[in-house]
C-alpha cells in the first residue's frame, strides 16, 4: 500500500518571486514525479508560502526549529549565522552566469567543510541553491563613464553599498520598495540593482538610463529541510528529494539568465514611449576595469574580519575563485590575490 507523508513547505516570500514559484513547479513537482515511479510513497504537501508562517527575518531559524519542514533560507539576511555564504557579495565582477555560480557553490558544499558546516550546524540539510541575476546601474541622467560616478548618490540595498566604495559615489541605503520615491524626489540619482527587481518596481520610469555594468551575480540562499524531518524520511524519499533539489538548482540558474535578459528587453519595450525613453548602454570594458580596480580589496577585508573570528574565509574565497576559473570564467579582478 502507498504511504502518505505529510510535509509543510513554506517561504517568507510569495510564489510570484521566480525561485519561490519554482519550489512548487520544479522541486515539489519533480519529487512527486520521481516518487510516483514506484508509488511506494506519496508526499502530502501543506503549502505555506508568502510569509504565512514566518517573515524574511526568520527564514533560517524557522527551518532549523522545525516551524516548517522545508523552506527557502534567505542567506542575505543571515550574515551573522551564515558568514561564508556572503562571499559572493564581496567579490563583484567575478561572474555574470548564475547557473555557473550555483554549480560552483554546489561543489563547495561537497568539498569545503566549513561551508557545509555553517549550513548543517543549523539542524538542516541543504537540497537546492538560489542566486540573483546580475547587477546594473539605473540613473536619471546618462552615465557617460566610470568617472561620472564621482559625487553621485546611488541607492543600493545593504551590503551592496560596499560596491560603490572607491568610486566617489555615495551609497544611499534603501530597499526595492523605497527606490522609486528615493530617485523621484532626489534622495538619490539612481539605483544599483537587479533587472528582475527593477522591472516590477518600475524604476525605469524615473531612472531610464540603464548602464549595463554586469557587476556580477550573487549567491542568495538555499532550499533546506529540517534535519529531524530529514532523518525520519525513508531513503527512497531522501534520494528523490536530493535529485529534485539538483534539478531545481540547475533549472533556477538557467531561468535567471533568461529572465534577466527578458526583463531588460521588457523595460526597453515598455519604456520606449516615455520621455525620456528607456535606453540601454553597455559599460565600456575599460570603465568596468577602472571600477573594479578603484575598489579597496573588499574580499580581503571581509575574509580578514572572518579569519579574526576563526572562520576559514580565505581558503573558502580561494576555492570559490578557483571554482569560477576552472569553469572557464575570467573574473575581472582576482580577489584571491594578496590574501
Amino acid at each position: 500500500a502507498q504511504e502518505v507523508i505529510p510535509l509543510t513547505v513554506a517561504s517568507s516570500h510569495p510564489t510570484v518571486i521566480p525561485w519561490v514559484g519554482m519550489i512548487q513547479t520544479h522541486f515539489m513537482a519533480r519529487t512527486d514525479e520521481i516518487l510516483a515511479a514506484t508509488g511506494t510513497y506519496q508526499i502530502q504537501w501543506n503549502e505555506a508560502f508568502g510569509g504565512q508562517l514566518y517573515k524574511a527575518n526568520a527564514t533560517l531559524t524557522s527551518v532549523e526549529e522545525g516551524i516548517t519542514d522545508i523552506g527557502w533560507v534567505f542567506s542575505f539576511l543571515e550574515a551573522a549565522k551564515l558568514p561564508l555564504s556572503q562571499g559572493s557579495s564581496y567579490t563583484p565582477f567575478a561572474t555574470n552566469n548564475p547557473a555557473l555560480q550555483l554549480s560552483v557553490m554546489q561543489d563547495l558544499l561537497a568539498t569545503n567543510e566549513a561551508f557545509l558546516e555553517e549550513w548543517e550546524s543549523h539542524n538542516l540539510k541543504v537540497l537546492g541553491l538560489t542566486g540573483t541575476d546580475s547587477y546594473d546601474v539605473y540613473t536619471k541622467e546618462p552615465l557617460d563613464s566610470f568617472a561620472a560616478l564621482d559625487g553621485m548618490k546611488l541607492s543600493a540595498p545593504g551590503v551592496l553599498g560596499n560596491w560603490l566604495r572607491g568610486t566617489g559615489a555615495n551609497a544611499v541605503d534603501g530597499a526595492l520598495t523605497t527606490f522609486y520615491t528615493d530617485v523621484q524626489t532626489g534622495v538619490s540619482d539612481g539605483v544599483l540593482s537587479l533587472a528582475l527587481g527593477m522591472l516590477p518596481a518600475k524604476i525605469y520610469e524615473v531612472a531610464p538610463y540603464i548602464t549595463q555594468v554586469n557587476m556580477g551575480v550573487a549567491f542568495s540562499g538555499a532550499i533546506a529541510i529540517n534535519r529531524d524531518t530529514w532523518d525520519g524520511l525513508p531513503p527512497e524519499v531522501q534520494n528523490a528529494m536530493v535529485e529534485a533539489g539538483q534539478y531545481y538548482t540547475k533549472s533556477h540558474g538557467e531561468d535567471l539568465l533568461l529572465r534577466h535578459e527578458a526583463a531588460i528587453r521588457k523595460m526597453l519595450e515598455i519604456g520606449a514611449d516615455q520621455n525620456p525613453p528607456v535606453t540601454l548602454t553597455p559599460m565600456e570594458e575599460a570603465d568596468r576595469e577602472a571600477w573594479v580596480n578603484a575598489m579597496p580589496n573588499l574580499a580581503k577585508e571581509w575574509a580578514d574580519a572572518l579569519e579574526a573570528k576563526g572562520v576559514p574565509a580565505s581558503a573558502y574565497l580561494q576555492a570559490y575563485m578557483d571554482g569560477l576559473r576552472k569553469r572557464g570564467e575570467t573574473p575581472l579582478r582576482n580577489w584571491d590575490e594578496g590574501l
Binding site: A58, G66, I67
Partner: peptide, 21 residues
C-alpha cells in the same frame, strides 16, 4: 499539530520577530 517543542519555539519567534518591522 507539530509538538510542544516547535510550539514553544514558534511562540518565542512570534514575540521576538513578528513585530520587528
Amino acid at each position: 499539530i507539530r509538538g510542544d517543542t516547535v510550539s514553544m519555539r514558534m511562540l518565542g519567534a512570534v514575540a521576538n520577530d513578528s513585530l520587528r518591522e
